[in-house]
Nucleic acid binder design. Sequence first.
DNA 1: TATAACTAGATGTCTATACCAGTTATCTTA
DNA 2: TAAGATAACTGGTATAGACATCTAGTTATA
Lengths: 238, 238
Amino acid sequence: MIIKDSHIPIYFQLEMEIKEIVKGLNPGDPISSEREFSEKYDISRMTVRQAINNLVNEGILVRKRGKGTFVAEQKVEQPLSGLTSFSEDMRSRGLKPLTKILSFQQISSDKNIAAKLKITEGVPVYEVSRLRLADESPMALEISYLPANIITDLTENTVHASLYEYIENELNLKISHATQTLESSLAQKSECSILQIEEGDPVLLIERFSYLQNGEAFEYVKSIYRGDRYKFVIDMKR
Amino acid sequence: MIIKDSHIPIYFQLEMEIKEIVKGLNPGDPISSEREFSEKYDISRMTVRQAINNLVNEGILVRKRGKGTFVAEQKVEQPLSGLTSFSEDMRSRGLKPLTKILSFQQISSDKNIAAKLKITEGVPVYEVSRLRLADESPMALEISYLPANIITDLTENTVHASLYEYIENELNLKISHATQTLESSLAQKSECSILQIEEGDPVLLIERFSYLQNGEAFEYVKSIYRGDRYKFVIDMKR
DNA sequence: TATAACTAGATGTCTATACCAGTTATCTTA
DNA sequence: TAAGATAACTGGTATAGACATCTAGTTATA
């Protein structure tokens, strides 16, 4: 029902009306033509067009010249950063995500870690090992290294809650960007038992370097994902 | 300059005109009022509004009721942000990238392709096979499928030049976003000879779905990368 | 029978006009 | 001088009608 002398614009009322109609239709179904709406509600065709245009811009309808206006196919929503987190990803597939912290300790950086974080060998770093599970079954092993002189007073609880919030809100550091590399490899003996796979099975190796706004690396993460069970998803906006 | 009896709609010509004007302005600057454009080009104000509406929807302008229309602040959008292309990636590592088109043909979509692109089985699609090389040695095999009813009149040259430019500028379609999945797997016999690897070697499987603004998928790409030589890189801005 | 022409109906473009509703500066008045 | 009214802008909403162009059927023709 459309009320003509309401303070709510007619085109807006019609938008609501059409949204209701669309609820009872399937993607691809046609809606009434512009002239039909115009006559049915006794409003101008241009006003009908305004309502439909807005719904087209919202991705609810699709116009096809000469044919009509149709209910759009389901819209795909993209997560903010472009990268879906493990937890989101698992949940979207109907699996229950769980993260177990296997170890948390402060160690002296060896040559390899020091090179990755571009710090001097021997500078203390936090080492955090995590096991990622989906529906109780292991999906990935993650080992993170964080320089203890930048990320100060880190605790196991903080790591388990939200590391990034701690860095930005408690330490007042500004996170700038991260670089992630993915590569396909074969499982090594040492990783097999914990991921419950066989030597030579396909695995996805992911390395992430995270940087502060001053250019310092504050995190190096090396992950091993089961290749047979995990797909990495990226959404890209244009 | 606006040509009235052109086959190009007046509002579209005006959009171009305003885009040029905006180039010489700074974010926050006002543009002429709707009535001024209307008088200057001797066109209806409603036509001016249609042009401005489109530019507002594109995020180029913002309207402020009672005040005027202004150049929008910087656009957040970045073309397919975060993903470095194969060519860029190779060059940054000092390798010479090369893409060879192995085959280009129009075929009838089978059940699998039709399902991926959400079209009816049998609808014709273009199939493009590409071999990606770095310093003469094969790195990846890419097979793309594009519905021939959406991406019309595709030629091998277009594919080899810039497909996305063709879609946006020649076909006047709007690219919205893409979803990419990566997974680790083992090489199958059929892929071995062309990639010069052994059966069971690690490979990176990448699937990409690209979508238009109306929600239709216009591209499905399946790629197989050599796991021993290729790393996939993602940069993330916060 | 195959093809071309027509037709009905859909969206697309465009006009000219009217009035509504915020915003701002100026002008009037107490 | 300060407060309020007013005028002159801005974009927002809405109308009625005209013609263009595309689509899909139907009809007429070669």
